[in-house]
Design a binder for these strands. Structure first.
Lengths: 194, 194
DNA sequence: AAGAATATGGAGGTCATCTCCATTTGTCAA
DNA sequence: TTGACAAATGGAGATGACCTCCATATTCTT
């Protein structure tokens, strides 16, 4: 799966150039509004080359944020190893919002990757989902989180946060969602569904 | 604003034909995969006419679901008038999921309308947001819902539900999100943010 | 150094979206 | 009814983004 055959020197160079320019454009905020072809020229590369390296805009976006997402997943694992499960989950979710808030493009990228109903979910998305699922499962095991709500619900809420990235009060509302989800997750058998 | 000048007879006829066909295609599920031009022909109308009546695909989608959304808003008002605020909110949110589940296209439409960061939010979206805001405000007033979380957070969660419409376990997860949000909203000053 | 393998770039094909305007249809006053 | 004016139509074709293809260039291997 991850067994990529070594690239030729020039290929690697171009690829790096593309990623570097992509990061730059992301930070400037205009990545999703730019013609993909123009982007190639911007990076000093032919369109053909661009498409060979990154078949779609989303593929490039994913590559740019691959490290970011991987870091998030790592963080999830580390938190899970060092904190009580409930706390690990809470910290992770709040960190996630921080990360998204810090990198303008990340929210939109995640939202796009996510919304992309292309069947095969992108690697990054899948990893993130797994991390969240694990965190929730651990907390359920621990007994501090209810077991009658699917981890997918948390994912869905995150999805909402990402998808709504351009709402005026985004940060406040995103924090609100996390608060609601975390409080809602707390074990308390009081609520029963009919 | 809503002062539309009366349409000429033929214009009205074409418009109705477009809406009728659009409903049909929505129910068949293929609305968003269909070429917009082809849709015009399908409805027995020239492309020019289609574009004059509905400048964008989203405009048409909104028109189709205008009634649906209006009904939801009405329902919100009626619930608010007849039930304790907290219950009204809960019922409304659950009904909303039911509605979305019932009409395949509605979820996608709402998600699209929503995601459309075209500045001017569509009328339907705006109305829905207002309804939710009112419901939450009433419940806060009543004292059964915490006041430290913005109503926008609820909206964001709904957004997530709509945006994730194609996840395999959608229905279950959507119900989960609603459960979390509702439980999370319950007043209990135990939680304090540092 | 020469041959094989790999990668490049950008001209041009494809396709959905949207515009434009000559023609048709409806409305209304006389 | 009819003439004349306004409103609406439809579909050919412009536009513009996306992607492919392949003759040429670069790198690797022996």
């Amino acid at each position: 799966m991850t067994a990529d055959k070594p690239l030729r020197a020039d290929a690697q160079r171009k690829r790096d150039a593309l990623l570097a320019k992509a990061r730059e454009v992301f930070d400037a905020g205009g990545f999703f509004d730019l013609r993909f072809d123009d982007f190639a020229r911007l990076a000093g590369v032919g369109t053909g080359t661009l498409y060979r390296h990154f078949p779609t805009r989303e593929a490039l976006a994913e590559a740019v944020y691959h490290g970011e997402v991987a870091a998030l997943c790592d963080r999830a694992r580390r938190l899970q190893a060092t904190l009580p499960a409930a706390e690990a989950l809470a910290t992770f979710l709040r960190d996630m919002v921080d990360h998204i808030a810090a990198h303008q493009g990340l929210a939109r990228t995640l939202a796009t990757l996510w919304a992309d109903r292309s069947g095969a979910l992108a690697e990054g998305s899948r990893a993130l989902e797994q991390a969240v699922t694990d965190l929730v499962a651990a907390a359920v095991q621990e007994g501090t989180v209810r077991d009658d709500v699917d981890a997918g619900a948390v994912m869905m809420a995150l999805h909402g946060i990402g998808a709504a990235h351009d709402r005026p009060g985004w940060r406040t509302e995103a924090d609100g969602v996390i608060t609601l989800v975390l409080d809602g997750l707390h074990t308390k058998s009081g609520k029963k569904r009919t």
